[in-house]
Design a protein around this nucleic acid. Structure first.
Lengths: 199, 199
DNA sequence: CAAAACAAGACAACCGGTCGTATTATCTAG
DNA sequence: CTAGATAATACGACCGGTTGTCTTGTTTTG
């Protein structure tokens, strides 16, 4: 095992553990020691890899969103019925996962937007980038659904994508304190299943 | 000045400063020292008043929501055009205030739901109670608007109130990282100004 | 004067970050 | 191909400062 390969593995482990801990306990609620102990990596190495906790968090954010992009992409590209159904299917998958996790954590992006969205410039930019990537993908899906005639065309796909992202984030917060997936389901039913539908 | 009156003033000052600091820096991001220094109250007194930081935060949450309840109530009871307009007027007032604050802070409830919603049982309950009080008031307004014929009746006032609260929370998060009131305006225009409207 | 309320600061644990040293990889010269 | 120089990485003891909480002595009150 070469040294350089080990570095990549270590960074990957740190980021992965960072996603888990930051999502559940927040930025200030998670100490470096806790992350480092979990993956058995000394502090000096951490600072060699990332330079600072803030910079680490900015990378964690990107590391977090990637799987969601892939998962959504998978549903959008799958040869199924129509794109609107694919979106509904995707969100139902998310809901199932959140139920399985007992509504713990929610969304790292939403949590960090609230906690450090206006105290860390670096993380704010990382959050912006991550949210925009996600929103753009939703927008592409909604645009396709518009062309298929299942989604109304008197509103732009971009605006609807923003509405969906925002209500979903709010629903995740409600989910956390109510320990229930009802807010999530209401979000899908009312937007994708009603408000966005072509007349 | 009696001793008991002073205690009330001190508690009030602590709660008020707590609202400001917890909203901007979060729960774990704000140390007791910072709050105590700001209001010139010794640490011993704090623990005499509140018992613990967690308990303090739970009280801060209630202290935070009260003015919003009052403000919304004011708009709902004012002898204006109709209740739907009153709701729109209320939210526009909020938007103006957030713009004046340069989009800093956002909503204490949303921020804390994300940060400690699933680590502090006590705060979770306090958040639940605060959010429900707010939601119930919105629900009452929407119900009145339904009776006035300006809001659709094929959806329950409760469901619409939940949707409004959730999208508003999500919009506040987006506002924080985009430094823009556009998400907030989109929320109002699309829900109150479109989706909720009677046909 | 007893009991409760209050305030001051001690307290250990922990924070993010630094630094000197040891180890290893890569490059250069002969 | 190798010997030596240089850079990159690994590592954890250690830093000053802060954390939330608790103990203890004082003051106030009924």
């Amino acid at each position: 095992m070469t040294r350089i390969a080990n570095k990549i593995i270590n960074k990957e482990n740190l980021l992965s553990q960072g996603v888990t801990l930051l999502m559940q306990q927040g930025y200030h609620g998670t100490g470096l020691k806790e992350i480092l102990d979990a993956v058995q990596i000394p502090k000096g190495s951490f600072y060699n890899y990332f330079g600072s906790k803030e910079n680490f968090a900015a990378e964690v954010i990107q590391h977090y969103i990637n799987p969601f992009i892939d998962q959504l992409n998978g549903h959008l590209e799958a040869p199924g019925n129509n794109t609107l159904s694919a979106l509904l299917c995707y969100f139902n998958e998310l809901i199932t996962e959140l139920e399985k996790a007992d509504f713990k954590g929610g969304c790292l992006l939403g949590n960090l937007m609230g906690e450090i969205g206006d105290t860390s410039e670096l993380c704010k930019e990382s959050l912006q980038f991550a949210v925009n990537r996600y929103r753009d993908l939703l927008q592409a899906g909604l645009l396709k659904a518009q062309q298929e005639g299942t989604v109304r065309v008197d509103k732009s796909a971009e605006e609807m994508a923003d509405l969906l992202v925002n209500m979903w984030q709010g629903a995740l917060l409600r989910m956390k304190i109510e320990q229930s997936s009802i807010p999530l389901k209401q979000c899908c039913e009312n937007l994708l299943g009603d408000f966005f539908k072509a007349k």
